[in-house]
Design a protein around this nucleic acid. Structure first.
Lengths: 203, 203
DNA sequence: CGTCACATACTCGGATCCGACTAATTGGAT
DNA sequence: ATCCAATTAGTCGGATCCGAGTATGTGACG
């Protein structure tokens, strides 16, 4: 009857923003980008308007005023509802409390690493390591600069910190894998055949 | 004109499977689940048939025969094309070579950790740590069992290995964060206000 | 004072995703 | 023999996602 509660992470961002002050969608997008939060949420205009509509249907936010400045498209300003505030907190709590199953593209690729030749695989992994290194270095520089200059307290840099740690972890694993390939610790099949191995599944 | 090349990771799995032998969609789903690859790819029937159709449109695979056993729905068996084999390898190479931007749900949640109270945040993080520990332990057990028993060579357990390392890394970070909260190394704002901080963006 | 580029603000329609459903078949228990 | 449950195989339609497009306003520059 209600089309299901919003599930898109961008909806979380919208709610978070409206908790600060009422805003119209375009301003939300701009603000998120200014704060670099488009690194945490995929913010595309199309989805944003959908998400806002969906939040309004669910009664988590409500339209305040529709002001037109000049002849431009009218801006509709939204604010959170009491319900919205509660649901935001509950949602946030659950997102943190219980790890969601994710399907990163890299995992899907690793699953078929054997289908690449041994050398091509090594090359591709090496290039990935280079990219990851660069990303990590850049993230580290930005982080240091922001925190040292006191532009934002650490609490608001946590997502960057987490991202950095995950990149570092991936880099470590990839580096180790390359070494294992080089030193013959990872046997490669002749053909690309993959055995059926039926790994343990949770009943 | 061609509706764009397939981007859904499940399409990679389909191609990978067809490289072994021709198959009909239902068998693909079954096989992927048997191998535990549903941990790497989100395999839902609806998407699967869409993906297969899309691969056929792109001419990466082609229908072989449409056999009906009894009065059941006819099974259409697909095989990869030469084109499909090449594209698979190229796609795989790129997936490994260049890290894709991902938007894990946890990152979106961390961005608003400040909006939870200090104590609720600590509680939620602690519960997450518990879950992650359990996941890691179970993954380790499965991994050891499969590798030790020689049911599959390490090459085909890489995705599990990677998943485990990432869980461990997240666990480490979360544990550290909890400690930082406990020992006052992470200052909490009075209100939930979030400053505009404009972190460094890549031009 | 015309116009070219950019910013503002939102709409639209196609592509994709996926849960719920259909429908026949096999295999035990009763 | 019969009936329920599980398995086999695939369809369907609604929800979501998002890039490209629309249309106006503003400022700079010659």
């Amino acid at each position: 009857m209600d089309g299901g509660r919003p599930a898109n992470p961008l909806a979380l961002a919208v709610l978070g923003l409206l908790l600060e002050r009422p805003m119209h969608p375009h301003a939300m997008a701009t603000t998120l980008r200014e704060r670099g939060l488009d690194q945490a949420f995929k913010v595309t205009t199309g989805s944003l308007y959908d998400v806002v509509r969906s939040l309004e249907r669910a009664n988590w936010i409500s339209a305040q005023e529709t002001a037109r400045v000049g002849g431009r498209p009218a801006r509709t300003v939204y604010a959170h509802t009491a319900r919205g505030r509660d649901e935001f907190v509950a949602w946030l709590d659950e997102l943190i409390r219980v790890p969601a199953k994710e399907y990163p593209k890299f995992i899907s690729a690793i699953s078929y690493l054997g289908a690449l030749g041994r050398q091509p695989a090594r090359d591709a992994l090496t290039e990935r390591a280079r990219c990851l290194s660069a990303q990590a270095e850049q993230a580290r520089a930005v982080w240091r600069e922001v925190v040292d200059s006191g532009r934002a307290p650490r609490l608001f840099m946590l997502e960057a910190e987490y991202g950095l740690r995950m990149i570092e972890a991936e880099l470590t694993w990839v580096g180790q894998l390359i070494a294992d390939i080089d030193e013959g610790r990872l046997s490669w099949p002749a053909a690309g055949a993959r055995p059926a191995h039926d790994s343990g599944r949770t009943a």
